[in-house]
Design a protein around this nucleic acid. Structure first.
Lengths: 150, 150
DNA sequence: CCATGGAGTTAGAATCATTCTAATTCTAAT
DNA sequence: ATTAGAATTAGAATGATTCTAACTCCATGG
């Protein structure tokens, strides 16, 4: 069967508002908005389950499936980042400034590290000609201040 | 009860041989050896399950649990690296030269990228004083040569 | 205004990767 | 040979995520 004709994009009214400032293209439904707000108000890179817990205080009825759904939409739109450190749960982060992550091998804490100087991937690693780079995820690992002091 | 006295480290004989060249400290049992060999002979960063498949041709009886067990030991010993790109399966890599990974968002291919110049994390990202860095994992994302050409 | 359709939401089931458990086998040092 | 610790195993258990199918909501068009 033929693919369905693309639906004419509706004007942003009502729920169809967008975070224009950030150039993102998602409908910010109440749940998505709350998930985003919770994440924006957290600095500890919560897991999906932790986010559910925090969103519940405002929207008691929300389900984990919806949290995952919202997180996926927000990630696709570039409003948040998914951080995959190791096997198991993904963590999420709404720090939209350019940054990388430091992970303490001892206590497991995740710390944002902000750029001190401009950095160009291609200066340091060679990739096949024609490769198109869109972004990079850097995880620095070691022992954090507090754990190193012990 | 008192902790058991540390077992006197035995001399490497028989299976207790070690990959001295690499400075690793694991007993290389036949299975671990085979898992390592399969990985060393692969450039496609296989998953645990793919490794099982490949090892099976030599050791038909090996189980997935043993593959995971071997992979964990080899990873701990620093003989291989575990690469976590996204939710889902971990991938493994026996490229022991310093390198980072490029991941194609279109076809999912994972490519090793080798350093072209010396790189110091602390030149580019600021971390709290006292932080002790032991290693870093960089994933560059974008579109690979072949997919970009389309 | 009401009907329609698409997107959002939901609970719960299903899936998938990984880890655990308990029994068994192997290895190296008594 | 005996023994203790490590490795291995199958299968069960767990945990995170995704899927499914029903349901709701809103914007649009008749």
């Amino acid at each position: 069967m033929p693919p369905p004709a693309p639906r004419p994009s509706s004007k942003p009214t009502g729920l169809d508002c967008r975070l224009a400032v950030l150039g993102a293209d998602v409908r910010l439904t109440p749940h998505r908005r709350e998930v985003f707000d919770v994440l924006a108000g957290s600095t500890d890179h919560p897991t999906a389950y932790e986010i559910l817990d925090r969103v519940k205080s405002r929207s008691p009825g929300i389900s984990l499936a919806t949290v995952y759904n919202c997180l996926d939409h927000l990630t696709t739109a570039g409003l948040i980042k998914q951080v995959q450190l190791e096997r198991g749960q993904s963590r999420y982060c709404a720090n939209l400034h350019e940054h990388v992550h430091f992970h303490c091998d001892v206590c497991g804490k995740l710390i944002d590290a902000h750029p001190a100087a401009d950095f160009e991937v291609t200066k340091f690693w060679s990739l096949p000609r024609g490769t198109n780079i869109t972004r990079m995820d850097l995880v620095i690992r070691g022992t954090c201040e507090a754990c190193a002091a012990k």
